[in-house]
């Protein structure tokens, strides 16, 4: 797997723009993304936001599906710990992301391509920062090894 990743990195096109799928909670990250837009904050454009009623709604199979279909990175963004609209949905999301990372590791896939973040609906700046953080991480890892032969 490491060899695969290394090969992919060496083949990184000059302007590699990581495709990131972000599963966002309606009550925090999604609203923060909206606010970031209103505030004209800029962040890498290749993030595809998917709105969830709560980060706890995310299923491990959704995370795997996004990676399987060629996302370079996948993130889940939920409310600050202790502030979940549904009490503990973000903790459920945290456990699911942790388990999904284990599932990826057992098949030799770099689990750094998946991450969980916490923020509030007022944190537009943080949202932009998170997207940038994730984009930078994925840039270092290079394109997903699963996109071979997949058309853009």
């Amino acid at each position: 797997m490491e060899a695969d990743e290394a090969t992919s990195t060496s083949e990184v096109p000059e302007e590699f723009r990581p495709r990131i799928v972000a599963y966002c909670c309606n009550y925090c990250a999604y609203a923060a993304a909206d606010l970031a837009g209103s505030m004209r904050l800029s962040y890498p454009p290749d993030v595809k936001v998917i709105r969830l009623p709560c980060s706890g709604k995310v299923e491990i199979s959704y995370l795997l599906k996004a990676l399987e279909e060629g996302a370079d990175g996948v993130m889940v963004a939920g409310c600050m710990e202790g502030d979940c609209h549904f009490m503990e949905g973000n903790f459920r999301a945290k456990r699911k992301v942790r388990h999904a990372k284990r599932l990826l590791e057992e098949i030799g896939f770099d689990s750094q391509r998946l991450e969980m973040f916490n923020l509030s609906s007022a944190m537009a700046g943080r949202f932009a920062e998170i997207i940038l953080e994730m984009t930078e991480r994925i840039k270092k890892l290079g394109p997903t090894p699963l996109r071979k032969g997949v058309k853009d």
Binding site: K65, E68, L103, L104, I107, P145, L146
Partner: peptide
Amino acid sequence: GQLRIWGKK
């Protein structure tokens, strides 16, 4: 999902 990812990899 795991097997598909593994297979593609």
